[in-house]
Design a binder for these strands. Structure first.
Lengths: 153, 153
DNA sequence: GCTTTACTTGACTATTTTACTTGGTTATTA
DNA sequence: TAATAACCAAGTAAAATAGTCAAGTAAAGC
């Protein structure tokens, strides 16, 4: 599991897609404009997302991309791993390098941690992310209203 | 929060330090050899770790590095953020770019997620990582013993 | 106090990844 | 058949990563 700006771009783009595609496909030009990501870079990212069955495409005029599954079934981990190709070069995989055991221990510790991070991000779906944000927005709007009513009363 | 091989190197090195420094300082050459990380790269990483009060150094012969706090008070997030400088270029910070609100929404969603990842990694300490691994080792040893005793009885 | 050891610092370089560009081709619809 | 938008491939600039080198400085021990 790697977490770089590339992953952020991908998650942001999928979030944009989830927010804008009500049955109608969304084309990359629109996402490019809204999220300020270059069109061709988006094409590369979406090519990987499509190959990983996260989105599906419709060609031709009026075409674009759609989520391939319900929002709640698309995890952040899935998106990030899709664009990162995740060839996770885990050094001592069986042979070599791990001569004295101690090195293998630290390596194992890292693998454990890596698994835990992956598991964590696998439990956060696009749908959940959006809902949580909506709740927060409602809450802050409410407290804003409260604040106003307090100051005006 | 960014999670790259650089962060892995740093966490691995601190784990190695935690495992090997029983009151005595550990020098970077030893870590370099054990973890197969170049000495000069370790120097750069430890310079940042020291500035962030994660480790302390002792100069001169017999010198090296020690953890600056108990194992349980050093979080994985702390280590990763220390070496990554975390200048997290969060695009629309107030001004610019965020014209239509929608873009800001996706941006906020990412920031939320980022905070959650950070919080998650902040709750995993070096000490906890090591202990968990020990438990696993004991368990697998136990189940191995069980398996053997079953097959031999 | 001098020498040795070993950390410290900074500048410099190679490699890899990221982000983007260009220039196309192919499928679909109006 | 003209316009649209996905698809594809090669190349490129900039940034991050990983490592090198050389000149320091602090501490230990003789």
């Amino acid at each position: 599991m790697r977490l770089t700006t590339k992953g952020r771009y991908a998650v942001t783009a999928v979030l944009d897609l989830a927010l804008h595609s009500q049955e109608k496909p969304v084309n990359l030009s629109d996402i490019s404009e809204r999220q300020a990501i270059s069109l061709s870079y988006l094409e590369q990212l979406f090519s990987k997302l499509r190959k990983n069955n996260i989105v599906k495409s419709i060609r031709g005029p009026g075409g674009g991309y759609l989520l391939n599954s319900p929002k709640d079934e698309i995890s952040v981990a899935h998106i990030i791993n899709a664009v990162n190709e995740s060839i996770e070069l885990s050094r001592c995989d069986g042979r070599a390098n791990c001569h004295d055991g101690k090195q293998c221990l630290t390596h194992n510790l890292w693998v454990d941690l890596s698994l835990r991070i992956n598991e964590f991000l696998d439990n956060i779906s696009i749908g959940e992310l959006i809902r949580q944000n909506e709740r927060q927005a409602v809450q802050s709007a409410r407290s804003m209203v409260d604040a106003i009513s307090v100051t005006t009363v």
